[in-house]
Design a protein around this nucleic acid. Structure first.
Length: 560
RNA sequence: UGGGGUAUAGCCAAGUUGGUAAGGCAGCGGGUUUUGAUCCCGUCAUUCCCAGGUUCGAGUCCUGGUACCCCAGCCA
């Protein structure tokens, strides 16, 4: 999956054809248009990768434009987080950060044009009345009694709307299209509504705000966007998009194309639901490592490359789909396997005492940072008489499929010596608290001679010096929801009912090799035989905290 | 219910003038291995939602069905 070359998809084919026909003077300009009302999530990553990826490979440009036409839902903090996430993913937008609100003056002029052409009118009916008159799937709409107001009257009324002479809900500007249309979006859609709320960009300059349907196509045209890519649910809006482009004097002719959005199982990707998880405290914020937000995935340890490769591997189509979480996980493993330095960390420590190792003696062993990449250098690991191994790596008895330490048998301490478990020490409750073993001094970097006919070593396990290892915390994550499609709920249920109560498990008594203890936040490791981990921002040198990004792929008989 | 879409393997997805089903993930079998990882090799759709039809030949064309998704915000 690494370095996947952008595969063919229907959008690229459209662009190829446009280019062949000489459309748009050979320019390709796309845009990523988030509304700043939440954090970006993995679904947005697909759109980002598509839009920026296309601009890149066609030598075009991709704009970052905030679709900020609703001051009630939007906040400045989201603007900052969105920019940060796009940059983190590794994309660079062409020109300045743009805002639909930056076009409010021009948009207002476009509205005037429509009024003058008799294609827009001010409706002073109540919101309820307007909804009622719009009809429904089976019933055609009815014309508003205000539909045939004169241009002068509409001009005057619209000016009064802008001047704040109406309260919210008292008047709207509507396109004059077709109340009979089977497409509800064409039944005289609302273009402007009144919102007496300060806007994060324009302050209190406006009390009328343009709707998405009006703003989007015209903003695209103003920016010279050639291919306006959006998700399937906007398909029904395309006739309106085209109607506006055709009826307003704009400098360009953008085209909208729709693709299916990304769905991942065992999580939710809707800003509404994600915001609820945050607001009600079910997670630790937008960047909780269990969240499918880009900032959550980042804190979890995902790399930009992993996410980009993932999106590349998905493809782009118009079919509804749900991608298995395993595909995302495989994408990080693939990237981290190649690039993450290796380290040892014992998650559930069990003391192992090497009885024939001199008291107080310490030896420094050398191990590669990455066994398949010498260029990454080597690391030093102190070995002392007492070390910790994982409880899971020891059994008093086991069949031969168990490739770890068994009482009376031998195993290699990885990058160190071969040890034999001689006896166990128990506490009053009968639980094993210590393993006593012996080591073979002649097994560093080589297999034991005089094998006493005992066959091959059972296996290799990781370890950390008890004296030199650093106590640390490890946070293990599991899927946030217990069901594949949390959004699908029965009567009276909430998606929150499907939250996985064990999505976070904190292990506080772990021990990591000293060389990995001082790493700064977001440093990623492969803890050998355990998985991929990332230093959390809560981490300190004295008390490191690691997030498990994803486990190693495991394939061994559960019955061993 | 009117309109707009989509159906190719467990999950994605190529397939564009009809010429005999790419690739990835998952799975399965084997090899290498001081990580039960990685890596390597092999395997994995007689069939493309269903039923008819046209054709020497249909995932691709025609007819008729079926299933699922989106739309009735002064949200985007």
């Amino acid at each position: 999956m690494s370095e996947a070359k952008a595969p063919s998809n229907f959008i690229r084919q459209i662009i190829d054809r446009d280019l062949a026909e000489g459309k748009n003077d050979g320019r390709v300009v796309t845009r990523f248009p988030p509304e700043p009302n939440g954090y970006l999530h993995i679904g947005h990553a697909k759109s980002i990768c598509l839009n920026f990826g296309i601009a890149d490979s066609y030598g075009g440009a991709c704009h970052l434009r905030f679709d900020d036409t609703n001051p009630e839902k939007e906040e400045d903090q989201y603007i900052r987080s969105i920019q940060r996430d796009v940059e983190w993913l590794g994309f660079e937008w062409a020109g300045p950060v743009r805002f639909a609100s930056g076009y409010f003056d021009q948009l207002h002029d476009f509205a005037l044009q429509l009024i003058d052409k008799g294609l827009a009118y001010v409706d002073t009916q109540s919101p309820e009345k307007i909804a009622e008159m719009r009809g429904n799937f089976t019933t055609p709409g009815q014309n508003s009694p205000h539909r045939d107001r004169s241009v002068e009257e509409n001009r005057a009324l619209f000016a009064r709307m802008r001047a704040g002479e109406f309260d919210e809900g008292e008047a709207v500007l509507r396109a004059r299209i077709d109340m009979q249309s089977p497409n509800l979006n064409l039944r005289d859609p609302i273009l402007y509504r009144i919102r007496k709320k300060a806007h994060h960009q324009t302050g209190d300059k406006w009390v009328i705000y343009p709707m998405y349907d009006f703003t989007h196509p015209l903003s695209d045209a103003l920016e010279g966007i050639t291919h306006s890519l959006c998700t399937l649910e906007f398909e029904d809006h395309r006739p309106l998009y085209d109607w506006l482009i055709d009826n307003v004097d704009v400098p360009a002719r953008p085209r909208q194309y729709e693709f299916s959005r990304l769905n991942l199982n065992f999580t939710v990707t809707s800003k509404r639901r994600l915001k609820l998880l945050v607001d009600e405290g079910h997670v630790d914020g937008w960047d909780d490592p269990r969240m499918p937000t880009l900032s959550g995935l980042r804190r979890r340890g995902y790399t930009p490359a992993a996410i980009r490769n993932f999106c590349e591997a998905l493809g782009v189509s118009r079919a509804d789909s749900v991608i298995d979480m395993s595909v995302l996980e495989e994408a990080v493993r693939d990237d981290l396997n190649q690039h993450a330095p290796r380290a040892f960390c014992v998650l559930n420590p069990l003391k192992l005492v090497i009885e024939n190792w001199p008291e107080g003696h310490q030896e420094t062993l050398v191990a590669p940072v990455h066994p398949q990449d010498e260029a990454m250098g080597s690391r030093e690991m102190p070995l002392t008489r007492e070390v910790y191994i994982d409880r899971e790596d020891f059994r008093e008895e086991a069949n031969k499929k168990y490739k770890r330490l068994v009482l009376g048998d031998r195993v290699r301490l990885r990058y160190g010596y071969v040890v034999r478990a001689e006896s166990v020490v128990r506490d009053d409750a009968g639980e094993i608290v210590e393993i006593r073993c012996s080591y073979d001094p002649d097994t560093l970097g080589k297999n034991p001679e005089n094998d006493e006919g005992q066959g091959k070593l059972r296996g290799v396990i990781h370890w950390v010096s008890a004296d030199r290892g650093v106590p640390c915390e490890v946070r293990l994550y599991d899927r946030l929801f217990q069901v594949a499609n949390p959004a699908k709920v029965a009567e009276g249920e909430s998606f929150l009912d499907h939250l996985n109560p064990e999505s976070l498990r904190v292990l506080s008594g772990c021990v990591v090799e000293p060389g990995a203890a001082g790493a700064v936040a977001e440093t990623r490791f492969q803890f050998e035989r355990e998985g991929y981990f990332s230093v959390d921002r809560d981490s300190t040198a004295a008390r490191p905290v690691f997030n498990r990004t994803v486990g190693l792929r495991e394939s061994w008989p559960r019955e061993a």
